[in-house]
Design a protein around this nucleic acid. Structure first.
Lengths: 263, 263
DNA sequence: ATGTCTTTGTGAACGCGTGCACAAAGATTG
DNA sequence: CAATCTTTGTGCACGCGTTCACAAAGACAT
């Protein structure tokens, strides 16, 4: 799950659960592919397989949108594409600004997925004066000074932050002050925003670290050889450790033997 | 939430809930910042604020790792940094390969977050022969032909896919066959992998679409002017629609009036 | 030592999300 | 028109994750 949302009732969004909303783009992608192959209808089973989810879950998800299927037949592909697009608000074009045109910002600007479906890169913004005017992905980079003007003139409500971590909060504040109410943050920082502003975070190193955790666990399971009490020493604990070994509550008697790779 | 996991018991991973694992990197980052400022101890309240989470949640998360705090004082920063690093498997260096050195791949290769904490870019791989040998981020790009050799020689278990969608599954299959068991996928595709292989997905357009959904909802709430029965026509439904209006079960009588922006 | 004050660790309750399993709906066939 | 077959839509139960609220633990002052 993508994370980083400024708390709010969180789930209830016109009745559609957050988890369902997060899957709608997945369904939409699968449906678009079917549409391009001129497939007229699809069953929940087929579509679920294409989207990589459980078919019951898919049916329940669609039930929040309404009864768009036909029993005994399945779902009409074109109709469903339209309904989901409308639900996600992709029948209109959202102008988006990307702030921070480094390697990542440039990659984002060139990313076809933006322009293709519902989004339009309204402007690229960077703090480096040397970048100003230089075209990236066919769009000239503009200086940060013009941020407010760009936001207001284009009616931008979605901003993408691809700056270094140090600049992210400041950029965020300016975006919000200028009227942006949804932010996609690539900078490795926790952004603080006022109520009513949505933030979604994409963090590469966090994803990698989660993978590393599972990878380590896998390695530890295999190497279930003689690993018992070689718990790493690490830096000396400055404060007291207190009753660790005997404070086993209900977590299981194994405590926290890491079973880490001996390597 | 990042999504896309090849189902498995999912949560139970040596007792630590998935949701907690996903937050550990967040805590680690906040703690590292404190460590650099030579802050000796931190309370759950302070740390939670820095990480952008609830303090009770943070304490419960830490309780899965063990009792590392001192009541009345808080947590020892250095000790906690070490414990979380160890738990995440960052005390060892994970060699990582990046496949697909386009705009995004190059951005990833240049991303400082990789090298800094537990990860090392072992190789950059691209299918374009013209790219071969060209250095990106100081590392020469190698051709896809050498993928298997690179994986085996370097003992790589984590792969990053930054190829176009069309090539992703094929690259994935080769990575897995060569021994990779964790994949971070940036291509907008559902990857199919055998059991025992973890996949995490980062999908820019999905994140944007989720934002668009909420943005639309906000706009619709404000513009609660006279919007009632102008439900868009859309493409003609080919199959029968059946009882839509009257099949209101318990979803509420409002049915699915989208309250969409008139624009 | 004793008391007070701070902060952790966690039991318990609640709510959301998931998946099963089945009844209802409709297509299709005879 | 009746019977059969397919597939949807959903009631229900279960489990994970979040949050509250508080007792226990320890620091610190007297």
């Amino acid at each position: 799950m993508a994370t980083g949302r400024t708390h709010r009732p969180a789930t209830r969004s016109r009745g559609i659960p957050e988890a369902t909303v997060a899957r709608l783009p997945l369904y939409l992608r699968a449906l678009t592919a079917l549409s391009e192959r001129s497939v007229p209808t699809v069953s929940s089973e087929e579509l679920a397989a294409a989207a990589g989810v459980n078919s019951a879950k898919l049916r329940k998800d669609f039930s929040y949108l309404g009864s768009y299927g036909t029993r005994g037949v399945g779902y009409d592909v074109e109709y469903l594409v339209y309904q989901i697009s409308r639900e996600l608000g992709l029948t209109q074009d959202w102008p988006v600004v990307i702030v921070g045109i480094g390697n990542l910002g440039a990659a984002l600007a060139n990313y076809g997925g933006f322009a293709s479906r519902g989004f339009r890169v309204a402007a690229l913004i960077d703090a480096d004066p040397a970048m100003a005017g230089k075209p990236v992905a066919g769009i000239p980079v503009q200086h940060t000074d013009e941020l407010e003007t760009i936001i207001r003139d284009n009616g931008v409500s979605i901003g993408v932050i691809a700056t270094p971590a140090g600049a992210a909060q400041q950029v965020c504040d300016r975006l919000v002050a200028a009227g942006v109410t949804s932010i996609l943050n690539f900078a490795p920082t926790v952004l603080t925003v006022p109520d009513g502003v949505d933030v979604r975070k994409v963090d590469l190193s966090i994803e990698l670290q989660i993978l590393a955790f599972h990878e380590q666990r896998k390695a530890g399971e295999e190497a279930a050889a003689g690993v018992a009490a070689d718990r790493a020493a690490g830096p000396a604990r400055s404060a007291a450790v207190a009753g660790r070994e005997d404070s086993a509550t209900d977590q299981g008697p194994d405590g926290d033997v890491p079973a880490v790779m001996p390597a």
